[in-house]
Amino acid sequence: MEVVPLRYYGRWITALALGVVLAGLLVSMITNPRFKWDIVAHYLFDDSIIAGLMMTIWLTVAAMGIGIVLGTAVALMRISDNPVLSNIAGGYLWIFRGTPLLVQLIFWYNLSALYPQITIGFPFGPSLGSFDANRYITVYVAALLGLGLNEGAYMSEIVRSGLNAVATGQREAAEALGMSRFRVMARIILPQAMRVIIPPTGNQLIGMLKTTSLVSVIALQELLYSAQLIYTANFQTIPLLIVASAWYLVLTTLLSIGQYFVERHFGRSDRRVAAAPDVAIESGK
């Protein structure tokens, strides 16, 4: 007998309607001369845009690096039995998650107004040297401090949730084998926590890539600020924002692809596919 598959008329209608809307948008984008696609094309590989792009990539990598290292340290402090450490970590979180990143960036940028001279040493004790804040707290340093310290706060929560997700039996089994605390953490807990830590970290990285655009307010020439510099001179605001957006999209797309592979790598002990036949053979004996 002939089988007539269910026909999804609703789907077809929705698809058709949305298709019409999208086609209309596309046509308008192409035909509306104010998009000025020739200018977009002209600036897409402009030297200062590419330089800005490189700065954005560098800032993302460096700030994320600071964030991950700091976040791991703060997470370990937070779960520490030492109340001083865990409270300091809590205080750090409270401040850096509780104030807007934009405010923090401007604050670090103006640090030299607060501390014109920064001295490293002991409180009321000998000094180990001092430096001029104006010279060393440049926009780079301010941007890295702002992005990195802020990211560290969020990363620490991600790392902490990852550590908490590892069953207590794992720690006990490792300790029962006589492993040192460091070894238990480095070889048993952290690698397992990674599976929980990696996906949100990927999201953070993609978020960070876009968040770096905030440092344009302290006049650091990353991608957005490079575009802004051009359009304040030639008033081609929309085309240059399209240029910047295109690059952001390229980078986030690449990162998403990378994230997929990294997640697959860390989930490998979880995959049953390859091992399934083994189980069947064993239990059948």
Binding site: A167, G169, Q170, E172, A173, A174, A176, I188, P191, Q192, R195, S269, D270
Partner: peptide, 10 residues
């Protein structure tokens, strides 16, 4: 242990 507690990532 009752729940084996093998290290799943190894």
């Amino acid at each position: 242990f009752q729940s084996f507690n093998l290290f799943p990532h190894m």
